[in-house]
């Protein structure tokens, strides 16, 4: 009789847990339909707008013609898989083209398309009477090796007159593989809870915080940084052979700007650019006088907001115009 009662209680507990899980998932889908939660929004981005690439060095790519509302912004992907306006395949006569390679910062995570670095840069050219296409080929979670692989497969077809390799400190990560699993790929609750557990571990010190994590990417033992340097050299050699100017642009990590904790990483990147005979621009001076949190897209997401991107685009514009004027 006691065993029967115990079994009944266990079964009831399991059923209640399953029901609670289902209700939690439904509740989260309603509550987070439009949210500013980094983990949920990045999960949506991966599920709605990304797909695995047939080229393993590219890893993943955008689904052409896809659309979603992510991190407070409407995101539309065009026919060639870019967060960019539709453009003719052939470059129009008399138009210069700048190809922006990069990751989520170049993509414009958390900002409307008009506030992405590429569109802001294009606006500056337009305001000064120059006919310049600025093509945004940024994809979230790309590293430098993936960006350069994309360039050789697709970017060259766009016939750029200038290539801007937009670099962020996590671009020395190794190429991410798609993570599978039913809950990982289908559950808002899983994305939210796993993200929050990750933050808790970092708060408790059992996982590295942003500072330790990014710094460790530049250890000699990390193969990602070696691959990033090799990719920069590969891209620079191609551009040099064809007289296409290449600028490696360093975007600052926006948690702490004064003193900036990653000056050694900037120096390593500058050295990698110069050793490949590429130009180098550090965007830190564009924002170093500002309060870091005033530059973020949300209090829990240190991606650059429109104000940051405007400051970055201005410095980039000044540098490029100087470069074109002298070359």
């Amino acid at each position: 009789m006691k065993v029967k009662s115990l079994s009944f209680h266990l079964l009831a507990m399991l059923l209640v847990l399953a029901l609670a899980g289902a209700l939690l998932e439904i509740g989260m889908r309603i509550a987070f339909a439009r949210s500013m939660d980094f983990d949920i929004e990045m999960w949506k981005y991966a599920m709605l707008l990304k797909q695995p690439s047939s080229n393993p060095r590219i890893g993943h790519e955008h689904k052409p013609h896809s659309r979603a509302f992510l991190m407070g912004a409407d995101v539309q992907i065009n026919s060639i898989g870019l967060r960019d306006i539709e453009r003719p395949a052939a470059k129009p006569q008399g138009v210069k083209r700048i190809l922006m390679l990069g990751d989520s910062l170049t993509f414009g995570w958390g900002v409307e398309m008009a506030d992405t670095p590429s569109r802001l840069l294009a606006q500056l050219f337009s305001a000064h009477g120059s006919d310049v296409d600025v093509i945004n080929s940024g994809v979230g979670n790309y590293n430098t090796d993936m960006e350069v692989s994309y360039f050789f497969q697709e970017g060259v077809k766009l016939d750029p007159d200038l290539v801007v390799l937009n670099y962020y400190i996590n671009d020395a990560e190794t190429t991410p593989a798609q993570q599978t699993g039913f809950f990982r790929q289908n559950s808002y609750a899983f994305a939210f809870i796993s993200g929050r557990i990750g933050i808790l571990f970092r708060l408790l010190g059992s996982s590295p915080d942003w500072r330790e994590y990014y710094q460790a990417l530049y250890d000699d033992s990390n193969p990602g940084w070696a691959r990033a340097k090799a990719a920069i050299a590969r891209l620079a050699a191609y551009c040099r052979q064809r007289d296409i100017p290449l600028i490696v642009v360093n975007y600052p990590e926006l948690h702490e700007l004064t003193p900036y904790p990653f000056l050694d990483v900037t120096a390593k990147l500058r050295a990698a650019a110069f050793s490949s005979e590429a130009d180098f621009l550090d965007l830190l001076p564009a924002v170093s006088d500002l309060e870091p949190k005033s530059l973020w897209v949300s209090p829990m997401d240190a991606h650059p907001n429109p104000a940051s991107n405007r400051a970055f685009a201005k410095l980039l514009y000044d540098t490029i115009t100087l470069k074109f004027a002298t070359d």
Partner: peptide
């Protein structure tokens, strides 16, 4: 905002 940019999928 202690976490670096970590992606779920």
């Amino acid at each position: 905002a202690i976490a670096p940019f970590i992606y779920t999928v």
